[in-house]
Structures are given as C-alpha cells and as structure tokens.
Amino acid sequence: MEPLIIQATEDTPEVYFNPEESIFKFSKSSLPENAIEFYRPILSWLKAYQSEANETTIFDFDIEYLNTASSKQIFEVIMLINGISETSDVTVRWHYDVIDEDMLGLGTRFSHLVKVNFEFVEYENDDLDI
C-alpha cells in the first residue's frame, strides 16, 4: 500500500503513515480552522488500510497543540484505528509533554471511548525556543 506522507504547515500536523516501514505517526501541531478538509484524505487512507493491515500497527500521536476542531477529527481517526484493531494488533501511543495535563486528559478521554489499547508516553520538553 502506498504510504501517506503530509508535510507539516504552520497549523497542520506532519503525517507519516508508511506500512512498509511500520511507521504511523502524527506530529507537530494541529490547529486548522477547517479541520474536516485536512483530515479527509487521512480518514480515507485509514479505511483502505484496514483491509490490508500489517500484523501489528503502532500509531504514534506526538502532537504539541490541538484545537477542538482537530480533536473532533482525531477522534474520527481513532474510531477508524479502533476498527483496524479487528484485523491487526494495534496500539495507540499517545505522547504528551509532562506539563501538559490537558493533552494527557484528551488522550485518556479518547482511550475510554474505544476498545483499542492506549499507551501513554510522557516526555520532558526543555526546548524553550518554540
């Protein structure tokens, strides 16, 4: 299956989904006002991936900032990932800055609404030059 690679912009995240390399990752920030449009191709890709999923799939969410428009879309992504977990051994790795209790809270919220396995990965960001 063709990988899905989307470069980050100032207000949209980097998406790197590559089944061959077994890397499925969101990073940077997701703040677009029109989140639906941005997430549409991602949702389509995940739907297609479900029928030919790898044996195991780890999704990394390493997102710094997320607006509510995106959080709604990310939940749609997680619902699809939940579906993929029927055909693949799936883990969601939710990364969060140790000082960002809201990001941890959001991941926890998502994890309670679906069956798929969540792992929480704390990191310390000492990079002040954001």
Partner: peptide, 26 residues
C-alpha cells in the same frame, strides 16, 4: 462538561466541531 465533550465527539452526524459549541466546553 466532560460528558458533553464526549457526546460531541460521538455525534458523527455533526462532523464540524465549529457547529457544536465544543470550543466553549473546552
């Protein structure tokens, strides 16, 4: 509020969060 947040997430008939008041809840 937490319950409302989840309800908005689960409301797949309204994909656009901007129309749901999720911003205020958040």
């Amino acid at each position: 509020l937490h319950k409302s947040y989840n309800d908005v997430l689960m409301d797949f008939a309204t994909p656009d969060a901007q129309k749901t008041g999720l911003g205020f809840i958040d």
